[in-house]
Design a protein around this nucleic acid. Structure first.
Lengths: 194, 194
DNA sequence: CTATTTTTCGAACGAACGTTCGATTTACTA
DNA sequence: TAGTAAATCGAACGTTCGTTCGAAAAATAG
């Protein structure tokens, strides 16, 4: 039972967070000024500090929310999928879906992974590692190799997936399902003629 | 016939460039101050501006040199390799070799791709596109699919290769040849049991 | 309507930034 | 060795940065 006040507060907070993601995605964390974020969020400079105690905490809020969502949604999709290949497909599709629906946040998560430090960094790292473990497990179910080779194959997949923000064009690559399918196909069978 | 003066100048310049790469790789382009670069390069703050007319030009020099080297070395290796699979192996190995031998520069190239603008950006973009075309052609020689699928497969490969700076540990992943081999194997045949 | 709490704001702070410039030191040349 | 050119330096410039603070405004509660 959230009060009306709390709801309004959270709406405002996430609207500012969206603005922050947009500005940081464009200019980078160091390049983005709190003043720019404030302007984009239609709030005064000092108003930002009513919602966050520092610029760092703002970045943390973005990354924490994004990674938590990513992990939660993946868990849900894996719960009712048994076949190893379908589970892998779920991993890839979940990643792409999150990307197209949250481009700015995705970019901020991938590109500003090391812009945090201290407790904020550690906290996000923990969620990130949980996500990696989830994916690694699914990869291992298909890939019958040593643990270290499974690690590398997982990193191979992550790299290919995370690079997407460098080239993706919503107009040209409109069909995400098809993209997921091709990604799965290449990762499963490679590019060799068979 | 370079004079002794010119040689000394170039030595100093590339030593400063190395220092700059190290600092920018660690703190990011916006996060790295010219003062930090100067200190790491054992030169005064204003001394930097004897070698570069701006911070932007310094970043450009790093990226231009790195990408040019990457392209030149790949061309050389492709010249005396005929078999499509061996050519693909050359692409992957060349990328990894450049990475381990120039970790800081590599990171600056991948992570600060969009930190340049204007003529500097355009110039680096051109070299980057040349590199992409080279790799895309080799991928196409193996992958018998449509042009757009070849594009995606190439981006798939690039992502997996460029992500390496996020996880590579020189102590744990000492054997680059083996790494190249595994990358080739996964990209060619996928992770499926065969 | 009044009192109280939540939200926003303007102004200012010291610090750090990229860049400039004239002077000084170093290295080479004639 | 004297003179010239290359290389380095210290000090300062105007800006922009993240953050703070007390007052004003808006929204809620009594």
């Amino acid at each position: 039972m959230p009060t009306q006040r709390q709801e309004k507060y959270e709406k405002r907070l996430s609207s500012i967070l969206r603005a922050a993601s947009k500005v940081i995605a464009k200019d980078g964390y160091d390049g983005a000024s709190v003043r720019d974020v404030a302007a984009k969020g239609k709030i005064g400079l000092s108003g930002i500090y009513y919602y966050f105690k520092s610029k760092d905490e703002m970045l943390f809020a973005i990354q924490h929310h994004a990674f938590s969502t990513l992990v939660r949604q993946l868990k849900e999709r894996l719960q009712d999928t048994a076949s190893p290949e379908e589970r892998l497909k779920a991993v890839i599709d979940n990643h792409f879906q999150f990307f197209v629906n949250n481009m700015d946040e995705f970019r901020v998560c991938v590109h500003e992974m090391e812009s945090l430090s201290g407790k904020y960094y550690k906290s996000v790292l923990k969620t990130r590692q949980e996500y990696f473990s989830l994916v690694r497990k699914v990869v291992g179910e298909v890939y019958g190799r040593s643990p270290s080779e499974t690690d590398l194959a997982t990193l191979f997949l992550f790299g290919s997936l995370n690079w997407v923000y460098m080239w993706f064009d919503p107009e040209k690559n409109a069909d995400i399902d098809e993209l997921s399918d091709q990604w799965l196909r290449v990762f499963l069978n490679g590019i060799n003629k068979t």
